[in-house]
Amino acid sequence: MKNFELRRDRYDAFRQFDNPLVNISLTLELPEFRPFCKQRQLSPFHFFLYCVLSAIETIDNFMYRIHEDEVIKIDDFIGSFTVINGDNNLNFARFARSADLREFTARSVRAAQEATASRVLINTHADLTPRQMRENVFITCMPWFDMRAIEHPIFRHRDSDIPSLAWGRFSAPAGATMTLPFSVQAHHGFVDGFHVHLLAQAIAQRVAEVIAEHAPA
């Protein structure tokens, strides 16, 4: 929490706002990872989810939460994301993350299959304590269009401390790089635009690292 103390005055200022959230949309530039996924029979979505969640935990500002009116720093978070079920309705998937790419994607795929098959809305927080509920990052993917911006539903803005990330359709294949529309919503007491910039860099770096780590010897 040493780093947080350097911005506690910013947090104290923004916590007074009725809506302390900052919401930034950008075009994320990444190494082209779809051929890598195709060669290894990996879903591009689940591969990218692995890289995004791996990147988030490297930046303290995205790990701060509010619990019992105090700021805490979480050490880890669950994997979760939205899906569309067989009735074309929203549902939620949840799984325990793994540092191993293959295991992570296998768990993520199973969670997606379960949520897609359920007609009932899955409450991924039902079995969690209030403290455990802070150990989350909200993920939404809308692959059908070139998303320009998004405003997430918020139960109570002043208490909203969990970052919400969303992305849209991947760009058409065009060489060594790819782009996608990407959005980050977070508590401004913790996150500034600069930290969103750092996250964008960290995601691109993580994609490159994972591809390099699994390259043939």
Rank of each mutant, 00 (worst) to 15 (best):
R158L: 15
L121C: 08
R102N: 14
D192S: 12
A174V: 11
G168M: 13
S118Q: 01
R158N: 15
I203D: 00
A99M: 10
I211N: 05
R148Y: 13
T129H: 04
F138D: 04
A111P: 01
A174Q: 14
R206I: 12
R206G: 02
W167I: 05
P163W: 02
H195V: 05
A208H: 00
N136F: 02
V210R: 05
L165M: 08
P130T: 10
W167A: 09
A176F: 11
H152R: 03
H152C: 06
Q113R: 14
L198I: 12
I139L: 00
R110Q: 11
E103P: 03
M147P: 11
F104R: 00
F155T: 11
H152N: 04
M133H: 12
I122W: 06
Q185L: 11
I122V: 10
A212G: 13
D192R: 06
M178E: 11
M133R: 14
A212E: 13
A149H: 13
D100L: 07
S164K: 14
P173S: 01
H195W: 04
A126G: 08
T105E: 02
T105V: 02
S160Q: 11
D159K: 15
P153G: 10
R119D: 14
S183L: 02
R107F: 10
S160L: 06
I162V: 13
P153T: 09
A126P: 03
A176H: 14
M147S: 08
P153E: 12
W167N: 05
F138A: 04
R119Q: 13
T179A: 10
S108G: 02
F104H: 02
G175M: 07
R148S: 12
A111T: 01
V196C: 06
R134C: 10
R110K: 09
